[in-house]
Write a protein that binds this DNA or RNA. Structure first.
Lengths: 196, 196
DNA sequence: TAACTTCCTTGAAGTAACTTAAGAAAAAAG
DNA sequence: CTTTTTTCTTAAGTTACTTCAAGGAAGTTA
């Protein structure tokens, strides 16, 4: 199935659109192939696009002064990614977004997205729902980070997103969950020992 | 100035609306007075409303099995609050939302908000922008929590939200920043010592 | 199939932040 | 203003997690 068809199915989870609307929506997106380790967003540059991942995997992360990196978000097939803060305010980004696999994305430029939102109430609805769900997800993550110790954050993540974890290097998952890769390794190993 | 006038000014930060639209929008809100320590959201009950704080202060928090509480968000004048996850999915809440002061709020019921979003593109835009900014804020918070040690999280918060901190009990701020009240007390005191 | 490079594991030593407990200060209630 | 309740501070002891360092496994490139 071609990329724009996949995107059109995605938006039909949110609103009912006719053929013309589908075309209008998807025509604002550009398909781009991204090689593993290639960056689509970099610090100090404005994130001009939001990216819909047709196929592949990405990781967004920040690097501290000391050189430690921390995964702020990631995306696999059928998810979105960008430096959201940079994108919506059109200000310089603070994070990298890098491909973890050879990937295919559909990107929409800030101005194009703005036009879409303005021209059709339904398109506005799509982006509203995406933002709402993103916010809800983000708040659940904050709550886990505040309330659960490292091991239980890992358990909770795995119970919901085991299929995602498979496609992430472990250091990326560790820093997403707010722990060092060494500690995650220990957590996983303690689990194996307990079972047997 | 009356509450609905204040709300109407608030929405004019986002969209241009005529008098009729202002009325239509604000008429979906109910003004309610909330006494200090009163709850507007409780765990296991669905959050049927979103709350716009006209005057006052609120704290959202979760309580763990061990009985520790953790501030997930707060709101003072001109901010919004609810259990967002409960509200948008209309599922049982996991947090409390409690008044920290005697407050006046404007609340909108889930169904009313849905109607508003459906009936006028501009109203949809308002809630879209709110969700987008909420998400951006939430992501910045996650990044701070992942990358900064306790003292710097405190500094960063104070540099942006000192006026908010004044109105929060210190234990609420501490748990929002992901540390114990005892530790925040130490952090503040170390700072004073350094200065002199 | 060797030689990098990247990623993961293990363990020892260190530390940032937590827990517990008790008292002081401030705020609220009578 | 006196009492009670709530909030904040201080300090000692503890722990969950980090850092550092080195070796092993797995994937990637020649």
């Amino acid at each position: 199935m071609n990329s724009k068809k996949i995107l059109s199915q995605y938006i039909q989870n949110f609103v009912e659109v006719n053929e013309e609307e589908v075309d209008q929506f998807t025509s604002c997106f550009e398909e781009v192939s991204i090689k593993k380790r290639q960056f689509i967003v970099q610090p100090n540059f404005i994130a001009h696009h939001m990216y819909y991942v047709v196929k592949g995997a990405f990781r967004a992360y920040v690097v501290t002064e000391e050189g430690n990196d921390h995964t702020t978000s990631f995306a696999i097939d059928d998810w979105w990614i960008t430096d959201y803060n940079s994108f919506i305010y059109q200000q310089p980004a603070s994070s990298f977004v890098m491909a973890l696999e050879d990937s295919i994305i559909l990107r929409v430029h800030f101005e194009k997205q703005k036009e879409l939102k303005e021209t059709n109430h339904k398109f506005e609805t799509i982006f509203r729902i995406m933002a709402e769900r993103g916010l809800a997800f983000s708040q659940r993550r904050i709550t886990s980070n505040l309330t659960l110790p490292a091991e239980r954050r890992y358990d909770q993540f795995m119970s919901k997103y085991a299929h995602v974890a498979q496609r992430l290097p472990q250091y990326a998952l560790a820093s997403f969950l707010g722990m060092t890769p060494e500690f995650l390794s220990k957590v996983k190993n303690d689990k194996l020992r307990k079972k047997s």
